[in-house]
Each structure stands twice: as C-alpha cells, then as structure tokens.
C-alpha cells in the first residue's frame, strides 16, 4: 500500500563492482564448504567421509587464504579500505534504529551511498571480521594444516589442542556472524533487496534524506 509512495523515493546506485560481488559469493561458497567439512571433521555427521572432508577442507582453506590475499591487495589499491574505517558518528542512531526504529517503521538513519556502502555498525563488524576473526581463523587453520612442520619451524610450544580450540571457537563466531548477517539482508526496503544488490551490483536506496555529510570525501 505504501509501496507506491516508497518507490518514488528510490534511486538505483551501482554499489558493488563485479569483483566485489564475485569475491562475496566466492567467500559464501568457501565458508559454507569449510563449515560443513569442518563439522564433519569434528565428527558431527558423516557426509563426504573423513578423508575427503579433510582434503576438501584443506584445499578450500588454502585457496581462501590465497584469495584473501588478493582481496587485501584489491582493498588497498582501490582505496576501498576507507569503507572500513570505523566511525562512532551515527553509530548510536543505527543501533537505535535496529533495536527500536525498525519496529516503528522509521527510515534507516543512514541510507547507503556509493561513497559509504556500509553503515557504522557494518563497518565495525566487517572490519573486525576482516582484520581479526578471519585472519585468526586462517592462521589457526594454516597452523593446523602444517602441524607436522611445527618442530622444524620452532613452534613446539604450541599444542594441537590449543590451536584446535581457537579454530573451533573462530568457526562458531563466524557461523554466528553469518546467521545475523543473512538475517540483516532481509531488512532492506524489501526482503530480498540487499541480496539482489549483491547479485546485480545495483542497490536501491532512498535519496531524499540528508546524510549530515559525514564521511563526505574531500576532493
């Protein structure tokens, strides 16, 4: 009923480049595979069989490590890293929106723009994910994988139990992120709006509202 009114305010902006979208969905596939095979290695169920699960987990894990390196390169060479610089401005407003305003039908306090793809909460979450959680998971995964070389590398102070514990904890944290992340995609102006954006690259955003000029790029 109010959709007509809404649509008039919507404009389309090209938010995600082809590489970004590819990277996102590649990560989706890899993390999904890693979680499934990881849980099988943790003996929660039988699916591929332990040997294949390990081989798959290792191959995907190492591939992800390499692909992540390329992503880091991309982020820095394109200047996209700026999208992840945390800010406290409007942070409270965004938190208030998701915990209160959204139920009241308020508009998002921070509409997405090309220069600022992520809202302050997203920035913080993605930054923590990309600089802490994922690297930690990759590091522990790499250590886990290279267990037999620990002695040669002088890493004998480690035990597999410790490394496995951190890797497992990391996996739970990532899985928890995914649950919330996937849910959050439904909070666009339509349930599938955000997902569509990540597929096509075009995000439909409301343009009439002023963004208070935070994080405006100075040219």
């Amino acid at each position: 009923m109010s959709e007509n009114k809404l649509e008039s305010k919507i404009t389309k902006i090209y938010l995600f480049t082809r590489y970004e979208r590819f990277w996102h969905w590649l990560q989706v596939a890899m993390i999904f595979t890693l979680i499934i095979t990881g849980l099988e290695i943790h003996d929660l169920f039988g699916f591929l069989g332990f040997e294949k699960a390990v081989a798959t987990h290792n191959t995907i894990g190492i591939s992800w490590l390499i692909a992540f390196g390329i992503f880091v390169f991309w982020v820095f060479t394109t200047g996209e890293w700026r999208q992840y610089i945390p800010t406290e401005k409007k942070m409270m407003a965004v938190i208030r929106y998701y915990s209160y305003g959204i139920f009241k039908g308020e508009s998002h306090p921070f509409p997405t723009r090309r220069e600022a793809k992520h809202n302050p909460v997203q920035r913080l979450a993605y930054l923590a994910l990309a600089t802490l959680l994922l690297p930690l998971q990759m590091l522990t995964g790499f250590l886990y994988w290279s267990y037999n070389s620990w002695e040669a590398w002088g890493l004998n102070f480690l035990t597999l139990k410790e490394v496995a514990a951190v890797h497992m904890a990391g996996a739970f944290a990532i899985a928890s992120f995914i649950i919330v992340h996937v849910y959050m995609t439904t909070t666009g102006h339509t349930v599938f709006a955000h997902i569509k954006a990540m597929i096509t690259g075009w995000e439909e955003v409301e343009t009439e509202e002023d963004v208070n000029g935070w994080d405006q790029r100075t040219h």
Binding site: I41, H42, F50, V54, T159, L160, A164, M168
Partner: peptide, 9 residues
C-alpha cells in the same frame, strides 16, 4: 594428545 574427530573441548 588431541586428535581431530576423536577429541573435543
């Protein structure tokens, strides 16, 4: 010792 699949915390 910790053995993947056999052990868990």
């Amino acid at each position: 010792f910790y053995m993947p699949g056999r052990d868990r915390i």
